[in-house]
């Protein structure tokens, strides 16, 4: 298996295979930054604006990861899996929802907000966008755990639960945000396979820490 693309978003910068693809020093708050990052893709997808911060971050990372990849054409939609990790679950939107119920004089819980209090919704958004029907797993870990990610995906691939995988880490808590996503594909499906790194825990960590 190979890592055919990696995307890293943090500190107002988006890199794709270690090349900066979007960067801004104009906006210094996350919500504005991620909106600008999305706009740089020139994509028309109004649903993006309804998402919470966590889903927006994961979504923009996945758009850069899958750009020009036609992966939905190359693999059966039910064989493309998502394996994600995150530390803070959906903490920001959890706090927002808590505010809508805590003051009884101002009690107004909203379904549009409540639905995002489940962190796996970010994977749902990516599946809806790309029509992926495969495996969904979200692990809550204190920090990014390359070993756990690698071991789990390896077993799932060996059992033929999936053929290709979008995997990584996406975490937001106020102004601390980071998404690191990988596209993992079999050698046989990649024409220029020598150009890519082998999928293993050491290479995942290398790409993460560059």
């Amino acid at each position: 298996m190979l890592i055919t693309r990696s995307v890293h978003i943090t500190h107002q910068r988006i890199t794709c295979d270690n090349q900066t693809v979007f960067e801004t020093s104009d906006v210094n708050i996350f919500t504005e930054f991620i909106k600008a990052g999305f706009k740089s893709l020139n994509a028309t997808y109004p649903k993006f604006y309804k998402m919470d911060s966590l889903s927006k971050l994961a979504f923009v990372a996945s758009e850069f990861l899958l750009r020009d990849q036609d992966i939905a054409q190359r693999y059966a939609p039910e064989s493309i899996g998502l394996v994600f990790q995150n530390a803070a679950s959906s903490i920001d939107i959890d706090k927002d929802h808590q505010l809508t119920i805590q003051d009884r004089a101002n009690y107004f819980p909203s379904p549009a907000l409540f639905v995002y209090t489940l962190p796996n919704i970010m994977m749902g958004e990516i599946c809806i966008r790309n029509k992926f029907f495969g495996e969904n797993a979200l692990f809550i870990t204190e920090k990014f755990d390359a070993e756990l990610l690698y071991n789990h995906i390896t077993v799932m691939l060996a059992k033929h639960k999936m053929d290709a995988c979008i995997a990584g880490w996406t975490n937001v808590e106020q102004e601390q945000y980071e998404s690191f996503l990988l596209l993992i594909e079999p050698e046989t499906m990649v024409s220029n396979s020598k150009e890519f790194r082998t999928f293993d825990a050491a290479n995942i960590l290398k790409l993460y820490t560059i």
């Binding site: 939609p77 039910e78 599946c127 790309n130 992926f132 495996e135 059992k159 639960k161």
Partner: peptide, 13 residues
């Protein structure tokens, strides 16, 4: 014996 998961790719709620 074994299991699997999936996504509807349809709607979040």
């Amino acid at each position: 014996l074994g299991g699997a998961s999936s996504n509807d790719a349809n709607h979040i709620s």
